[in-house]
Design a protein around this nucleic acid. Structure first.
Lengths: 339, 339
DNA sequence: CTGAAAGCGCTTACAG
DNA sequence: CTGAAAGCGCTTACAG
């Protein structure tokens, strides 16, 4: 591995550095014969353009960064695939970073991404709903703008009063609403909700979607029917177990996520209930395999891949930098039955 | 966004370019007072180190690339998370690329990654088993070596006769073997296998693991019990449906993947069978939710995250560049019963 | 500890 | 179409 540079190639081909550069930069103004000679020299010498140097001079595509809390869950893979598909098609690379929910790591990441002159950073997934986050994000956006990069929020709503930070989101509220509609249509009135406590955008949106839908149907939200559970089967099971034992008369549960819904199956069965007759359950996320539970889980399918696609298009300037709100798809299966 | 460079900062702080550079390069040899002055100037001017320029001079961490067929399935997310966790911890970034199984795209990708002077490219997942792939990989390894980069295979065995290309893999053969062992212990002899046809390493390894285990137990593999199915629920269901109707007397099926196993549940139920009494089913991959099927799927858990970790460690030179073969974990649940 | 200078590898006006 | 030269933004011996 002898490092060979353009100068070496030029010398070997007996042309100037400029001419050699032109053949690799794809500049048309080079005589075919000379071009061949340069290419041959490059081949002979084992020359590989230095993309870093090229990038430094402002040429070459800038990468786009995907920053997520954890590379896990339904959101991650599909959304990333969506981003990669358009980035790849346009000749850009995507950098994948995880913050583990660590604020300092997040800051550092934005810092190095900025130094690397990425074209955009996609901040993916649910975030804190507090003002502290909003300010942090505004700061990131400013810092990035300083080097000509954009901050794009994915899978969470726009930040109020920050019209310049674009958001590509899916309608979680109406997604949950569709689930409530279904249950109401089946005659349910005592519809419980089990999900994470407020504090993060996704938890907030889904919970709000639930209460809003209830109100829309003239049902007063009952705090006794709203249970907090972490996003896991185990905690979902725990919460639903308690809900069922509490005697509040829930005939259906809207789970914030499929994970929690699966926990609900387990808890209900643990108490000897028959599904869906004794309890209707609706999930959210439409992760693989839930269609094959017994009964198949009725849930909401979020357009994660599409969110990734749209965000990447905005990142690359292929699409206008305007907020996007995509629709979810209601997946009717067997877990919601007439009351 | 006025581009400001180190020279501007140096001028503003009234020090030489060299001194300014030293404070950002983390060089200790700068008087605290001067250092402060430079930092203050940088702040005032809104200076952001150009990581591209730094990278070009050979400083700065080189990224590591993750190249996969599709950003999907059980392998992808966990493995990527493993890679990212060690890369992040060591200050390296990870580039995420998908080939979509397109050979030309794969080549191009290796090409740009090479130009970008990545430290290593992790070729992730099952690959063709033919000589053409082996040669292609050898070519990639050579091309990458030319710029000081390494090719690392992840989730597939080492290439015969290419001792210099490291592989980080998990033992798929013994993983499937554990499933067969379990079934034999439960009294099964007519054990079917449903999975992809030969041609890709994973299909090959799992199928071989099945026949090897059978032989080990003194059971002669019966071609009538070996069915081809694509890696999907739908095709798994189709294949198992045919298997069952064929009257070959299978009492158990070892599925190449959980996807196929889930299809097997569907097919068996479609024929009125009771699980697991009428048919034992064992999967592979241990994807989410399968534990909550009825009955819970007995399957094999591959250490994808760990594969990612080990590969990244080798990529970064934290671990020696030697082949790694990780063990799987057998997950005994309810889908395999005595015959 | 600090600076002047050369260098990293490429690109791009500017003149022919 | 081709070349000499300046430049991109940083780093690092080499002398103080």
């Amino acid at each position: 591995m002898v490092p060979v540079n353009l100068r070496d190639v030029a010398a070997h081909a007996r042309v100037s550095l400029a001419t050699a550069s032109r053949v690799f930069a794809g500049n048309a103004n080079v005589q075919p014969a000379i071009k061949e000679r340069v290419l041959a020299s490059a081949e002979a010498l084992g020359y590989v353009v230095n993309g870093l140097a090229r990038a430094m001079t402002g040429r070459g595509p800038r990468s786009i960064a995907f920053v997520v809390r954890a590379m896990i869950g339904p959101t991650f893979a599909s959304l990333a695939a969506g981003v990669e598909s358009v980035a790849g098609k346009n000749g850009h690379l995507v950098l994948m970073c995880a913050t583990d929910g660590d604020e300092q790591r997040e800051r550092e990441l934005i810092g190095v991404l900025r130094e690397l002159r990425v074209k955009a950073v996609l901040l993916v997934g649910s975030t804190e709903t507090d003002a502290a986050f909003d300010e942090r994000a505004a700061g990131y956006a400013r810092d990035l703008a300083q080097v000509g990069a954009t901050l794009i929020l994915c899978g969470r709503p726009p930040i109020m009063g920050q019209g310049d930070i674009v958001s590509v989101d899916y309608d979680q509220r109406s997604g949950i609403g569709a689930g409530v509609d279904e249950l109401v249509a089946l005659g349910h009135r005592r519809i419980a909700y089990v999900g994470e406590a407020r504090g993060m955008t996704t938890a907030e949106q889904r919970l709000d979607g639930y209460t809003a839908a209830l109100v829309r149907h003239g049902i007063t939200p009952d705090p006794a029917l709203m249970r907090v559970a972490a996003n896991s089967e185990a905690d979902g099971a725990r919460a639903v177990d308690e809900l069922l034992r509490s005697g509040v008369g829930a005939t259906a549960v809207v789970a914030m996520t499929d994970n929690i819904a699966v926990g609900a199956y387990r808890a209900a069965r643990g108490q000897g209930l028959t599904l869906p007759d004794d309890l209707s359950i609706i999930g959210f996320d439409d992760v693989p395999v839930v269609a094959d539970l017994t009964p198949g889980l009725t849930t909401v399918h979020p357009p994660f891949f599409e969110v990734g696609v749209r965000a990447a298009e905005i990142a690359l300037g292929v699409a206008p930098a305007a907020d996007v709100l995509l629709q979810t798809r209601f997946m009717r299966r067997g877990s919601a039955a007439p009351v």
